[in-house]
Amino acid sequence: MKILVCISKTPDTTAKIAFTDNNTKFDTGGVQWIINPYDEWYALVRAIELKEADPSAVIHLITVGAADAEPIIRKALALGGDEAIRVNADNHDSYYIASQIAEVAKQGGYDLIFTGKETIDYNGSSIGGMVSELLGLPYVSLAAKFELAGNKATITREIEGGEEVNEVELPVLVSCQKGMAEQRIPNMKGIMGARTKPLKVVEPVAVDTLTSVVGFGLPPAKAGVKLVAPDNVEELVRLLHEEVKAI
């Protein structure tokens, strides 16, 4: 079984969000980069668990990004995975990125492709759907559980106000969220081993972009909290009812 896990580099959750170049570019100054948490904690760790259950499985990691994405992909390799592929391209829109992943996936003949449910920077939740359409694969989004028996996957996915169990034959693409697996910390053996695992760099294929960022902005700051005394709860309820009409 061959598994492809899509890995994205995102700013750390606590990073300061600011913009440069007349608000057209994200200010990367002083930003700590991490593996997108959904890609790491849920997609990658679940793939590693599948390989632990079936040691013949092979895990490839893919990222689309410039050379500065390499520390992130090495960190992912330290957690697990056999080799990594970096498509040497700058950040474009999701269609461009999905097309690059699909191109690599076509040549790799994967049985299973995992993505995180979204990235914490662009919040697009689009890559999984786009790659599956480009490859003509079924797509199960927002999966919270994934079990495999032979060629048949049983996947629990979130629906509004509940859950649904899906059965599907491989190959399939799955976007992963909380519930799939628990966070792991890379150990020293993993970190040492990751240095020598193959990291292949491929050039992007020519693809159009469909959208472009015109500019960024920050939401207006909150006016500040209005505190109500704990023995005056009725006043809080009155404010919520009359002032903001929230209840």
């Binding site: 269609y95 939740s125 689009s126 797509y139 959208t211």
Partner: peptide, 23 residues
């Protein structure tokens, strides 16, 4: 951009080669 929309809209975007703004 609810749970169904998140699954279908990106697929339709590819199928129609139509730019998508999600969220």
């Amino acid at each position: 951009n609810n749970l169904s929309g998140k699954a279908i809209a990106p697929r339709l975007s590819v199928r129609l080669k139509a730019g998508l703004v999600s969220g």
